[in-house]
């Protein structure tokens, strides 16, 4: 996804139904979560009755958005249409579970998911919904326990490692969160998001040296990545404070100089936010 690509689509979708459909597709592919937009455009598209084969995907997408936003009419309509067309579909069965969840009927939802699992124990979606239900009712420790059990069977599911990592961050167990992100790096060593979050976690637990390495790697993979550059600058500052003599060596001075130069160049083109950034960068010179 290019910067600005999504925003341009959002604007275009206001005036053309082809663009609206494109926007919905884009949101599905890139997992962009903005249910209000889905409902707004999806509802219009469904009403137009010109969706052809896309209809079912859009109905499912609108259903999810409506269930989340508490828009019961659309939720019920979409589910009714989908059930009519796919009476024996497992995918629709899961949606019925989600419908119950949106009504806070946890017992009924659990029944539906357990039923799916009794015939198809490898159905990861149903497992994930059960975990998500713990989370929704605010039971974080139960959710963590359920995820750990899940990972004993499906240990390569990095989406779930991610979920576990975020939960650990939420409860402040940063060492454990870091472990989850290590798993994710093993699965996908070039994911900027994972590398950067891991670097931030290492910094937060006080391992500035390792954090600097991962921020450096991110800045190597994507030269002008702001998160990587700011992170690198912060690490350098923290390390300089810890060990003054070592950080005075030419190598580390050069690293900070390069980082700050890149940030300065980047912020020249950024308008209003450039002013505070320039001042801060001037202060950060070692």
């Amino acid at each position: 996804m290019e910067p600005g690509e999504y925003d341009a689509l959002v604007v275009k979708a206001r005036s053309s139904s082809t663009a609206a459909l494109e926007l919905l597709q884009f949101m599905r592919t890139h997992k962009i979560h903005q249910p209000e937009l889905v409902l707004q455009h999806g509802a219009k598209l469904v009403r137009s009755q010109r969706l052809g084969n896309e209809l079912w995907t859009v109905l499912e997408q609108v259903f999810m958005a409506a269930a989340e936003l508490g828009c019961d009419d659309w939720r019920d309509y979409c589910l009714k249409e989908l059930t009519k067309n796919f009476p024996s579909s497992l995918r629709v069965e899961r949606l019925k579970g989600i419908e119950k969840e949106s009504q806070a009927d946890w017992k009924e939802a659990e029944k539906i998911y357990q039923k799916i699992l009794s015939t198809k124990p490898e159905d990861t979606m149903a497992h994930k919904r059960l975990i998500a239900m713990h989370k929704q009712s605010g039971k974080v420790s139960e959710a963590i326990e359920a995820i750990n059990t899940y990972l004993q069977t499906f240990s390569t599911d990095s989406e779930v490692w991610h979920e576990l990592g975020e939960l650990y961050i939420e409860v402040g167990s940063l060492q454990r969160a870091a472990f989850c992100f290590e798993e994710m790096i093993v699965h996908n060593p070039r994911s900027m998001y994972t590398i950067l979050t891991y670097a931030e976690l290492l910094y937060s637990v006080g391992d500035f040296e390792a954090s600097r390495k991962y921020f450096s790697m991110a800045a190597y993979l994507d030269e002008m990545n702001l998160r990587a550059l700011w992170g690198l600058a912060t690490c350098n500052m923290a390390l300089a404070e810890k060990d003054k003599a070592r950080e005075k060596t030419k190598q580390f001075q050069e690293l900070q100089k390069l980082t700050l130069e890149r940030l300065k160049t980047a912020y020249k083109g950024f308008g209003a936010t450039g002013k505070p950034a320039a001042k801060l960068l001037a202060m950060m010179t070692l």
Binding site: E166, T197, S204, A233, T234, K279
Partner: peptide, 21 residues
């Protein structure tokens, strides 16, 4: 998303610079 040390620190420092000016 999550609020972790490094970016939170930078954000606060930038906000402080903004305050000053």
């Amino acid at each position: 998303t999550h609020a972790l040390g490094p970016m939170l620190k930078i954000a606060c420092m930038l906000a402080e610079e903004h305050c000053k000016s």
